[in-house]
Amino acid sequence: MRATAQTGHLPVSQSPAVHLPVLYTQVLEGLRVIENGCYLDGTFGRGGHARGVLEQLGPQGRLLVMDKDPEAIAVAERDFAPDARVSIFRGSFAQLLAWEQTAQGLDGVLLDLGVSSPQLDVAERGFSFGKDGPLDMRMDPDSGISAAQWINSAEENEIADTLWTYGEERQSRRIARAIVARRQKQAFARTAELAELIASVMPRGKDKIHPATRSFQAIRIHINRELADLEAGLDAAVQRLKPGGRLAVISFHSLEDRIVKQYMNRLAKAPPSNRRLPEQQAFVPTLQLVTGAVKANEDELAVNPRARSAVLRVAEKCGEAG
Rank of each mutant, 00 (worst) to 15 (best):
A268R: 01
V284H: 06
D299R: 08
R266P: 02
E298R: 11
Y263V: 03
P278D: 01
P285A: 15
P278R: 06
R275N: 03
N297E: 11
Q262C: 00
V303W: 12
R306Y: 15
N297K: 05
K295Q: 14
P278Q: 02
K295E: 10
A270R: 03
K295Y: 13
Q280H: 09
A302R: 15
E300P: 14
A282N: 04
P305D: 10
A282D: 06
Q288K: 15
P305W: 10
A282E: 02
Q281V: 09
R306W: 13
A293K: 15
V284C: 07
P285Y: 05
L289C: 11
P305R: 09
P305E: 08
Q281A: 03
D299V: 12
V294S: 05
T291K: 07
A282M: 07
T291Q: 06
F283P: 00
Q281T: 13
V294H: 12
K295G: 13
T291L: 14
N265F: 05
L287Y: 10
A268I: 01
R275S: 13
Q288H: 13
V284N: 06
T291G: 07
P278M: 02
P272C: 01
P272R: 02
K261I: 01
F283W: 05
N304E: 11
Q280E: 08
S273K: 09
A296P: 08
L289S: 06
P285H: 11
E300L: 07
A293C: 12
A302H: 10
N274S: 03
A282Y: 07
P305T: 14
L287W: 05
E300C: 09
Q288V: 15
K295N: 14
M264L: 01
S273Y: 11
A282V: 07
P278F: 00
V294L: 08
S273D: 11
N304H: 09
P278S: 01
E298Q: 10
R275C: 06
G292K: 13
N304V: 14
P271L: 04
R266H: 00
Q288I: 15
V294W: 10
